[in-house]
Design a protein around this nucleic acid. Structure first.
Length: 915
RNA sequence: GCCCGGGUGGCGGAAUCGGUAGACGCGGCGGUCUUAAACACCGCUGUCCUUCGGGGCGUGGGGGUUCAAGUCCCUCCCCGGGCACCA
């Protein structure tokens, strides 16, 4: 019988759905496992990246289920957001219709994966049933003091007509559209995520990828130091944060951010024009220009002076755009001798440079002649009470001079130890329509209160023009009443969609629950999420927000009922709500396939019929006569390129020292970079290198596509797509089909052969189990392929018993079931099994069968392998050495010198050291 | 500049503890089948030398520790990602 993947896959998907095979029900008698994959945005079509993220996590969930866990594996859609509004503008379709149509299509595509999603748990964030509770959580955050309204200089996108979070602005441009973002002061809603900075820095008790932890730690950006107060001659006081309070005696001027609120008051009449001009210029300068590397320092003097609190020196107060209002207090003490930025500024404007650190074993610097700031270790000098104290490269109190300085200024009252964070509070207001409304009302008396009734539903909007949100002008929506029944006006902003995705794993538990965000009965059993998988691109936004969200919900008592129920069921709720997900893993990214078509310009000379390059340039517009060889790249191996010129196919060899010029990479490149450029391209429609999973599924079947994605890459790394490799995956699936669906007829049976096959099967269990546990799909599949090879050999020789054959085939099917759920189910069912293969228990390896009968003893002479001998696994040291010495080949080596030392690691290795 | 991750055959990638480098697959080469091609099947496939027994070299470069290094240490180079005038 032929393997008809289309018929088999369709039939089993229908059958599983009809049988409710993947419905998850709370069962306190069984251990639970909550497996979660980042939910997709309903952009319209599932692409290869979705398959790459979702099918391995499905395999993992299936594996856990077979291991005996009661597994919850839900799916949903992160359905609010700007693309729906853009579609509305461009195609005159309502965002809701566009979104729901896309969801319908993607749901169908998701089903074609054959994943074990529990669709009864589906949650869609734009559904009123969902966003009612997003609003409810906002209100709870407001009441608990975590949500607050504040004025801030914000990132305003004129293109999108909305404010963006810092995380959404890259190089002064909106990360989505690439359009510039300007700075503007506005009243906005914030979440006090900084209250949780220290707790978010701790990853105790959770198993998350190191890079994610590092990125979050960087993002939070904790710095230890001191806050020091500088008195102004005007009577104002300005605190500054510094990580180097020990260098206070070298602070020779002060710099404020141009936007600093005290600038006006500090500016003297004489300098007002210059200061105002500078501030206007700074405001109009884009973030991008402001951050340009190596830009010359600019700034102006305010005319005012401050008093250095440690030595009473009168120092000038300047403003400059290298000081950012958003970090620390927006003001710095400048220590030009020991900070490179301050040094450059001081040299630019001829301000004094006073060194206070003497490098160990060197003369003291001369502030007038030093060429750059000194930031190394040494001894404090010219620093009054801390003179002579050692300074090291250590940070914070671990540096003796910093500790001494903090102690002294604290005692003296001019400052205190302080910690500063780079992370700001989370700005969640968005001036858009397609989001969860912020459920607040502005009362007639100017106060603000939470909307007395929830939900606040999005009104129908007549038309979308791309201008300001329709909510800002819709009176049916805006006009309301406050809790006293008085006329009031609604907040017209909606929430950042990251808010919706910060708690979706709780809504999955009970998507239709009507009295709380989630049913505590479900939560008490399922929480927290045990395994979370998704893309590393969410390391600092989604993954940080969702951790914060859970901690805030915990502190506001949202989990109180859940904790009580946990106790009732005998489960300790302690630290159950400190983190949303106990384990997290990131998959890599699937890149586009290496493509031919790049136009190469090659100079060099002909040697023995090959063209050896001196220089290679990738240039899509080069004229044909620009060099000896100009043409289209057809194929590439390590160092040879097949180039189709106007009249011939030329083999170009690119030596190591050839000059290579690749667009987008500055300077002279090398072969590696050329290779990289030609190979690694993101899949994108504009590059024409996308691979459509629907077509592949139709042609090869979902099982083959799943297996290929899990086999051909290191899952956490990803890589370029290779359309040739999928044939091998298909071959494997077809082999399994043949093995499982064709009767085996034993010939002359050998007990040794039967045992060898069973041993192979039982060793495979160990490998697959270990690898699936660790998300190592590629090596798990490699082990299954080896077992396939053993079965094919066994059929050829026909020397294994029918029992051994059947046992091995069953093991192969069960171990493969999480990866290729359809074909294994079909063969299983054909073999007369009534119960689904996906309900079978994960097999356990029998140690007696798995044990090797012989092992290879490696014999080395001076560390080099010279002989391999089959020995019993329990061979002792003496016998191993004897066996090694007895070898003829080893005898020859031993004749060359005297044995000085023997290292034996039975049963694997004997190393003979001779001279 | 700072912080992560990485560099292994023509390619994707294996290699629990420092102990047989290159599992598994793709590709390639040779063969069988076929009028032919595709498919399928069998064999070979790191590289150089070889008297065909085997030997030299080999995990980005250089150095070190060790009986033994892809693995540990130092140093440099390159690639990917993140952050970046962060005081």
């Amino acid at each position: 019988m032929n393997y008809d993947h289309q018929e088999i896959e369709r039939r089993w998907q229908d059958r599983w759905e009809a049988d409710g095979l993947y419905r998850s029900v709370v069962d306190w008698d069984r251990p639970k496992h909550y497996a979660l994959t980042m939910l997709p945005y309903p952009s319209g079509d599932l692409h290869m990246g979705h398959w790459y993220a979702m099918t391995p996590s499905d395999a993992r969930a299936r594996f856990m289920r077979m291991k005996g866990f009661n597994v919850l594996f839900p799916m949903g859609f992160d359905a609010f957001g700007l693309p729906a509004e853009n579609a509305a503008v461009q195609r005159n379709v309502h965002p809701a219709n566009w979104t729901w149509d896309n969801i319908d299509r993607m749901r169908r595509q998701l089903r074609s994966m054959g994943a074990m999603y529990d669709w009864d748990r589906e949650a869609v964030s734009c559904d009123p049933e969902y966003y009612t509770w997003t609003e409810w959580l906002f209100r709870r955050f407001f009441e608990g003091g975590i949500a607050y309204r504040g004025e801030a200089i914000v990132n305003w996108s004129p293109t999108l007509q909305t404010v963006l979070a810092n995380e959404q602005v890259i190089d002064g441009k909106d990360e989505r559209t690439g359009q510039p973002v300007i700075q503007r002061k506005m009243e906005q809603w914030f979440f006090a995520i900084t209250n949780y900075a220290d707790e978010l820095l701790s990853f105790d008790g959770i198993d998350w990828p190191e890079p994610v932890k590092a990125m979050q730690t960087n993002w939070i950006g904790r710095s230890e130091g001191a806050e020091v107060v500088f008195a102004m001659e005007t009577g104002d006081e300005i605190p500054v944060f510094t990580t180097r309070p020990d260098t206070l005696w070298g602070a020779t001027f002060m710099v404020l951010a141009p936007e600093h609120p005290l600038v006006d008051a500090l500016t003297t009449e004489e300098h007002r024009v210059a200061v105002d001009d500078y501030r206007v210029a700074a405001a109009s300068r884009s973030e991008l220009e402001r951050m340009e590397a190596d830009r010359e320092k600019t700034g102006v003097f305010t005319g005012s002076y401050a008093i250095n609190p440690v030595n009473g020196e009168r120092i000038q107060v300047w403003i400059a755009d290298y000081v950012l209002l958003s970090y620390g207090s927006g003001a710095i003490m400048a220590v030009p001798a020991h900070d490179q930025r301050d040094f450059e500024f001081a040299r630019q404007f001829e301000l004094p440079v006073v060194p206070v650190i003497r490098p160990t074993g060197a003369d003291r610097f001369d502030g007038n002649t030093m060429a750059e700031a000194y930031i190394g270790p040494g001894t404090m000098v010219g620093s009054g009470p801390i003179d002579g104290v050692e300074t090291t490269d250590a940070k914070g109190r671990a540096n003796p001079s910093v500790a001494a300085a903090i102690d002294w200024i604290s005692a003296q009252g001019s400052g205190e130890e302080a910690i500063n964070y780079r992370m700001r509070d989370w700005l969640i207001s968005r001036q858009r329509y397609w989001g969860a409304p912020i459920p607040m009302v502005f009362r007639a008396d100017g106060t603000i209160e939470a909307a007395p009734e929830l939900p606040v539903l999005l009104p129908d909007a007549p038309a979308f023009t791309g201008g300001p949100s329709p909510l800002t002008t819709d009176e049916r929506f805006l006009l309301t009443t406050d809790s006293d029944g008085e006329p009031a006006r609604r907040e017209s902003d909606t929430m950042d969609t990251f808010m919706c995705s910060s708690w979706y794993h709780y809504r999955y538990l009970s998507p239709h629950f009507g009295t709380a965000p989630f049913d505590p009965e479900e939560a008490a059993y399922w929480l927290p999420v045990d395994t979370y998988t998704g893309g590393a691109e969410h390391a600092t936004m989604h993954l940080l927000y969702t951790r914060f969200f859970t901690k805030a919900m915990r502190d506001l008592g949202v989990f109180d009922d859940t904790a009580r129920l946990m106790r009732d069921h005998g489960r300790d709720p302690k630290s159950a709500f400190d983190e949303p997900m106990t384990q997290s893993r990131n998959q890599g990214q699937i890149l586009g396939e290496e493509r031919p078509g790049d136009r190469l310009v090659v100079a060099g000379e002909w040697i023995d019929g090959r063209f050896v390059a001196e220089s290679v340039r990738v240039d899509d517009h080069a004229a044909a006569d620009a060099a000896p060889v100009v043409g289209e790249l057809i194929r590439r191996t390590e160092r040879t390129l097949q180039v189709q010129t106007a009249d011939a196919m030329v083999t170009v060899e690119v030596p190591e020292n050839a000059e290579v010029e690749v667009p987008g990479i500055d300077g002279i490149n090398d072969v590696t970079q050329l290779r990289h450029y030609l190979e690694v391209q993101r899949m994108s429609k504009s590059k024409g290198n996308t691979v459509n999973p629907d077509e592949l599924v139709e042609r090869y079947g979902a099982d083959t596509v799943r297996l290929y994605l899990m086999f051909a890459f290191d899952w956490e790394k990803g890589g370029p797509w290779d359309s040739r490799g999928i044939a091998g995956a298909r071959r494997f699936i077809e082999d399994v089909w043949k093995i499982g669906s064709t009767a085996y007829e034993p010939g002359r049976i050998s007990d040794d052969a039967s045992l060898a096959l069973r041993r192979s099967a039982h060793q495979t269990i160990i490998k697959v189990d270990r690898d699936m546990e660790a998300f190592k799909w590629n090596t798990a599949i490699a082990a299954l392929m080896t077992l396939r090879n053993d079965l094919l050999d066994a059929r050829r020789t026909a020397t294994v018993s029918l029992e051994a054959w059947n046992e091995t085939v069953d093991l192969l099917l069960v171990l493969l079931a999480p990866i290729a759920p359809h074909v294994t189910e079909e063969i299983w069912s054909q073999s007369g099994n009534a119960e689904s293969i996906h309900l079978q228990a994960w097999p356990e390896s029998d140690p007696e069968i798995a044990a090797d009968q012989t092992v290879t003893l490696v014999v080395q002479v001076n560390g080099k392998v010279r002989e391999r001998i089959d020995v019993a696994p329990d061979i002792d040291e003496e016998a191993a050495i004897a066996a090694a010495m007895a070898s003829e080949r080893i005898q020859e080596w031993l004749a060359k010198g005297e044995v000085r030392k023997v290292i034996a690691r039975p049963p694997n290795l004997v190393n003979l050291v001779i001279n």
